[in-house]
């Protein structure tokens, strides 16, 4: 273990150490010329330059971008159209029938994403809570069990998508099991409701361990003497759960719920590799809509994609602010203790 760690560490640090040594003399000179202020600038510059160019700038020009039209890539070459892209996205002649919307694909993606978020987050949180409660039961070989649930978290979304595509294939092992039990095989990825359920199930499979781990950390922080006191009073287990475990787990639980919501709103890669958005538009989600309108379809419309991404960003900002507020509240509570 230490051998592997040491070797990995050496491989990573060797080039950095060499670089640091080379820089020592010129930087001493720079420090003499510009003082500490110059050094602060030097330390900040690389990261902030990349950050500004590739995170801040896109964020700012995205708004401008969403108010332009045409196929040109660069902002100055694009035609200003005001809120026309938003209007196009949001206009429907009859809001009870999505097919009458100008951008019916956007509305379908919106509806699919909404349904997905509600179902996936609910099931995911319930499963993660059960898993955390079970892992918290002073099991033997806890690290093994933790690994069982955590293992898929690190897999790439493409790998996850392909693993399950292979299992859910028409001639896949799941259908073989069904036939073996005397049932009819099912076209898992080619029937709307099954494909949608598969997207939910597969994303839960991939992320369950991550959320269970955060909840487990919360459970382990609950003082044992509370449980001992409850036991001495002869409190029923269900009551212990509702009166002790859940309230004390709440801070972690809220963070986990918001994190799960943020992720679910952006669902893309696993589902895309699994179903490609199909059958038809049954598993078309917002991020895929943005990707297709902005990059993949023949009639590219970057302005429309930018407008859609800003609408999605709005939802995410609300969720993020919620998370920061919750984090602050937890911090204050922690300090009070």
């Amino acid at each position: 273990m230490t051998g592997v760690k040491g070797m990995l560490g050496a491989v990573v640090t060797a080039p950095l150490v060499a670089l640091a040594r080379v820089l020592e003399v010129p930087l001493r000179l720079w420090q003499r010329l510009t003082g500490q202020g110059g050094m602060v600038a030097f330390f900040l510059l690389p990261n902030m330059a990349i950050f500004t160019l590739f995170v801040l700038l896109p964020l700012v020009i995205n708004i401008a971008y969403s108010m332009t039209t045409g196929a040109a890539l660069f902002l100055p070459e694009r035609t200003y159209v005001g809120a026309a892209q938003y209007e196009r996205l949001l206009r429907c002649t009859d809001y009870t029938n999505l097919m009458t919307c100008q951008e019916d694909q956007f509305w379908i993606a919106l509806r699919n994403t909404g349904t997905f978020v509600v179902l996936q987050v609910t099931l995911l949180i319930v499963a993660a809570t059960i898993t955390a409660l079970i892992l918290n039961r002073a099991l033997r070989a806890l690290s093994f069990w933790r690994a069982v649930f955590f293992f898929p978290v690190l897999l790439s979304p493409v790998v996850v998508g392909l693993i399950w595509r292979w299992i859910l294939d028409r001639n896949g092992v799941l259908n073989a099991a069904l036939v073996g039990m005397g049932m009819d095989p099912v076209n898992w990825l080619l029937e709307r409701n099954y494909a949608f359920s598969a997207a939910i199930g597969v994303t839960i499979w991939a992320h369950l361990g991550f959320f269970a781990l955060i909840l487990l950390a919360g459970l382990q922080a609950i003082p044992r003497d509370l449980y001992e006191a409850a036991e001495m009073d002869g409190t029923k287990p269900a009551r212990v759960f509702w009166r002790i475990t859940l309230p004390l787990l709440m801070p972690n639980m809220l963070v986990v719920i918001v994190l799960a919501l943020i992720r679910a709103v952006q669902v893309f890669d696993e589902a895309y590799v699994l179903t490609g958005g199909g059958p038809g538009t049954a598993t078309l989600f917002l991020t895929q809509y943005i990707y297709e309108v902005g990059f993949a379809s023949l009639l590219k419309n970057p302005g429309l994609a930018a407008a859609a991404s800003i609408l999605m960003g709005g939802v995410l900002i609300v969720l993020t602010l919620l998370q920061l507020a919750l984090g602050k509240r937890n911090e204050r509570k922690g300090r009070l203790k």
């Binding site: 950050f51 160019l53 590739f54 971008y65 902005g294 990059f295 991404s309 960003g313």
Partner: peptide
């Protein structure tokens, strides 16, 4: 600023980021 952008996901800035990466 850094904390505020902590949660800005890639999918929100795809289009302008592409134009910048293409610009350089």
């Amino acid at each position: 600023l850094i904390i505020a952008t902590l949660m800005i996901p890639l999918s929100v800035i795809l289009v302008p980021l592409y134009s910048i990466v293409s610009g350089v």
